[in-house]
Every structure is written in structure tokens, then in C-alpha cells.
């Protein structure tokens, strides 16, 4: 059993990243709540990271390219910072509009 892979790992994960980006963008743009939008934003982000990381693994014999890995770690942290700010704004908005009609 075994044998050569039918399709290179990097291409599988690269394409998966592209699909995740599409799904996440759909989730971001469809009419929904802020919390769900923030969640979708994180899916778009991780899709981009996966795609980026996968393209760094095109020549498995040399190992994964460390530069995209480092950039992705930076990106993950930045995404968390943005998520935290969005959540805080969302909760603040809920607080100041408590008692008033929430429709947006």
C-alpha cells in the first residue's frame, strides 16, 4: 500500500486555504451579527495563512520555508488583537444602547 501521493500536500492545503477564504468572506458579508462577522473574519485570516504556509512547502525536501511561518505567526497575533478590539467595541455598543432599540 502507500505509494506516491496522488496530489502534492501543498496543493491540497493551498486549495483548501482558497476555499476557506471564500467561505469566510461569504460569512463576513452575509447579513449577520457582529460576533458572527468577527468569527468569519478569523476564518478568512486562517484560510490566508494556510494558503501562505502551504505555498512555503512546495519543495518538501528542503522543509517548510521559515519566512512564511514567521509572518503567519505575526499575522495570527495581529488577528487576535483585531478580534479583541472588535469584541470590546461590540460589547461597548451593546452596553451604551442597552434599553434602546437594538436593530443594527
Amino acid at each position: 500500500m502507500g505509494g506516491d501521493p496522488i496530489i502534492a500536500s501543498w496543493l491540497v492545503y493551498g486549495c483548501c486555504g482558497a476555499v476557506l477564504v471564500g467561505l469566510g468572506l461569504f460569512g463576513f458579508m452575509r447579513p449577520t451579527t457582529t460576533l458572527r462577522r468577527v468569527l468569519a473574519f478569523n476564518i478568512v485570516g486562517s484560510g490566508i495563512f494556510l494558503l501562505f504556509g502551504a505555498t512555503g512547502y512546495r519543495v518538501p525536501s528542503t522543509g517548510a520555508d521559515p519566512v512564511p511561518q514567521a509572518l503567519i505567526i505575526t499575522g495570527i497575533v495581529v488577528a487576535l488583537a483585531a478580534t479583541a478590539l472588535a469584541v470590546a467595541l461590540m460589547l461597548a455598543l451593546a452596553r451604551v444602547s442597552a434599553g434602546r432599540d437594538e436593530d443594527a
Binding site: F41, V44, A86, M90
Partner: peptide
């Protein structure tokens, strides 16, 4: 500013900015 309108505007801005950066 802390007013409801300001926070709403900030949130909308953040959403545009986030997707733009991505």
C-alpha cells in the same frame, strides 16, 4: 468619544479595515 454613534462608526470602520487588510 464613547457615544453610541461613535462606537457604531468605529465598529463599521473596523470591519472595512479588517477585510481590506486581509
Amino acid at each position: 468619544d464613547g457615544k453610541r454613534e461613535a462606537i457604531e462608526a468605529a465598529l463599521r470602520y473596523l470591519m472595512f479595515a479588517l477585510v481590506g487588510s486581509l
